[in-house]
Amino acid sequence: MSIQHFRVALIPFFAAFCLPVFAHPETLVKVKDAEDQLGARVGYIELDLNSGKILESFRPEERFPMMSTFKVLLCGAVLSRVDAGQEQLGRRIHYSQNDLVEYSPVTEKHLTDGMTVRELCSAAITMSDNTAANLLLTTIGGPKELTAFLHNMGDHVTRLDRWEPELNEAIPNDERDTTMPAAMATTLRKLLTGELLTLASRQQLIDWMEADKVAGPLLRSALPAGWFIADKSGAGERGSRGIIAALGPDGKPSRIVVIYTTGSQATMDERNRQIAEIGASLIKHW
Rank of each mutant, 00 (worst) to 15 (best):
H24N: 08
P25M: 14
L28Q: 13
V29K: 15
K30H: 09
V31R: 01
V31F: 04
V31Q: 01
D33H: 02
E35I: 13
D36G: 10
D36W: 06
L38P: 07
G39D: 08
R41S: 13
V42N: 02
Y44Q: 01
E46W: 14
L47G: 13
L49A: 13
N50F: 05
N50A: 06
S51I: 10
S51H: 13
K53E: 05
K53W: 08
K53I: 12
I54D: 11
I54W: 07
L55C: 04
L55S: 06
E56Y: 13
S57M: 02
E61Q: 14
E62D: 02
E62R: 02
R63C: 10
R63N: 12
M66E: 04
M66L: 09
M66D: 00
M67I: 08
S68L: 00
T69I: 12
T69K: 00
F70Q: 08
F70S: 08
V72C: 07
G76M: 07
V78I: 15
V78W: 09
L79K: 01
L79A: 12
L79H: 09
V82R: 09
V82D: 04
L89V: 09
R91E: 14
R91F: 14
R92W: 04
I93A: 15
I93P: 14
S96A: 07
E102K: 05
V106Y: 15
V106L: 15
H110R: 13
L111H: 10
T112K: 14
M115N: 04
T116R: 11
R118P: 12
L120E: 01
S122Y: 05
A123G: 06
A123S: 07
A124T: 14
A124H: 00
A124F: 00
I125M: 04
T126R: 06
S128F: 00
N130E: 01
N130M: 02
T131R: 06
T131P: 06
T131G: 03
A132Y: 00
A132E: 00
T139N: 10
G141A: 10
P143L: 10
K144S: 03
K144N: 08
E145V: 05
E145L: 12
T147E: 09
A148T: 08
A148E: 08
L150N: 07
L150Q: 03
L150T: 11
H151N: 11
H151T: 08
N152P: 09
G154A: 11
D155G: 01
V157S: 10
T158Q: 01
T158A: 07
R159G: 09
L160N: 02
L160H: 14
R162H: 12
R162F: 04
W163L: 05
P165G: 08
E166G: 14
L167K: 01
L167I: 03
L167A: 09
N168W: 12
I171N: 15
I171T: 15
I171G: 15
P172I: 03
R176Y: 13
M180P: 03
M180D: 10
P181C: 05
A183L: 08
M184F: 02
T186Q: 15
L188V: 04
R189S: 04
R189N: 07
R189A: 06
L191I: 02
L191Q: 04
L196V: 10
L197G: 09
T198V: 03
A200K: 15
S201P: 10
R202H: 05
Q203F: 15
Q203Y: 02
Q203M: 03
L205E: 14
I206R: 14
A211T: 15
D212S: 14
K213A: 03
V214N: 07
A215Y: 10
P217M: 07
P217N: 08
L219I: 05
R220Q: 08
S221F: 02
G226C: 06
G226M: 07
W227Y: 14
W227R: 00
F228Q: 15
I229C: 06
A230N: 01
D231W: 06
K232S: 01
G234R: 00
G236R: 01
E237Q: 12
S240M: 14
R241F: 15
G242R: 00
G242F: 00
P249D: 07
G251D: 11
V258H: 00
V258D: 02
I259M: 03
T261W: 04
T262M: 10
S264F: 13
S264M: 03
Q265A: 08
T267P: 05
T267M: 06
D269W: 03
E270F: 06
R271P: 13
Q274K: 04
Q274F: 03
Q274V: 08
I275D: 00
A276C: 09
A276I: 03
I278F: 03
I278V: 14
G279Q: 04
G279P: 01
A280T: 15
S281E: 10
S281A: 09
I283Q: 02
K284S: 09
W286G: 04
W286V: 05
